[in-house]
Design a protein around this nucleic acid. Sequence first.
DNA 1: TCCAAACCCTTGGATATCCAAGTATATTTG
DNA 2: CAAATATACTTGGATATCCAAGGGTTTGGA
Lengths: 187, 187
Amino acid sequence: MDKLGHEFYPEGTLSQPLPRDPILEAQRNWERHGWQDVAEPMAAITALMRTQQILLQRAETVLKPFGLTFARYEMLALLSFARDGELAMNRASALLQVHATSVTNAVDRLEGAGLVARTKHPTDKRTTLIALTRQGRELAAAATVELNAQVFADSGFSDRDISTLIRIFSKFRREAGDFSADEPAPK
Amino acid sequence: MDKLGHEFYPEGTLSQPLPRDPILEAQRNWERHGWQDVAEPMAAITALMRTQQILLQRAETVLKPFGLTFARYEMLALLSFARDGELAMNRASALLQVHATSVTNAVDRLEGAGLVARTKHPTDKRTTLIALTRQGRELAAAATVELNAQVFADSGFSDRDISTLIRIFSKFRREAGDFSADEPAPK
DNA sequence: TCCAAACCCTTGGATATCCAAGTATATTTG
DNA sequence: CAAATATACTTGGATATCCAAGGGTTTGGA
């Protein structure tokens, strides 16, 4: 579609690079309109959202050949680390930080693909357990290898920036109520 | 719904804080499985995605009383800074970094709400211009006041961290091909 | 004990995003 | 100048997310 673009900028079907950073322009606009005090937070949050979009698209591109989306991959990865490869759906919802309906949706599709199986909880009839099938475990392992190699190994962030991001987001998420434990002091 | 939760952790219908950080646990799992070299990038990217989700939900909560979503708000804000309050749809697509179909979708709804109007481009018949209505301009201004006060003014990041995030994401996005200009050297 | 409240999962509805493909218009090229 | 290519927007299809509401199960207080 694009004359250039795909070879150089493989993130989606968007056009060539813009001559200016649109988020920096938005920041300047905020400052000009008298909102100096929030111009930088606005820019940081907007840039975060755009960065998330780019990274998500990279992951989806890698996972597509496996027939997986990032949401489904996250579910498989979570299960692959669970004791007995089994997890209650409400537990998955809490750990993945998504709505229960999103878990239902993902499990429906994964089950349809033969990658997970639903089981009844032995004592609590309300609860449904999810377990990886052998096929699901193998696919998760293969997909992880590719994600590691194609997305995480060359993330676009320096090692130093990665440590910084982990620190900043960890603090943010704790204050937002995601979790309550204290982090182990960095060595 | 939750016994506790909403007053203290207003981000969605998720349950109480977890005792442990699930992303840190994932990082430990990666390390245990021999992927030490990508465990930190994985954790940083996963945390970024979760942080984006939290911030997006905060923005949506603030915008809901205005009948706006974040995507529609971004379109209104962009138009409010455009020369003559008018912008070609393909330009909006480039500046907002979303697919043309997403712009069509947003403009359909904004037009239905009387907030923007489509106009024909004077010379290029392929192109459609979008313009704010008076109502749209007023709503954008009011929504911005609330977003500034309720999301950006107390973002959950320190001033220092905000500067750091802007720097890291700016570099990342430039290298990802979002834009090509050099940043003005920080004063 | 027993009934209201809480919890677990699912269904249905709304929105946003992307991709593929189609229509119309402009530009480029032979 | 005409044909091929590129661009602009829309439509249709797929997926993910959330919320609201409903049915079944468990828990806890009167």
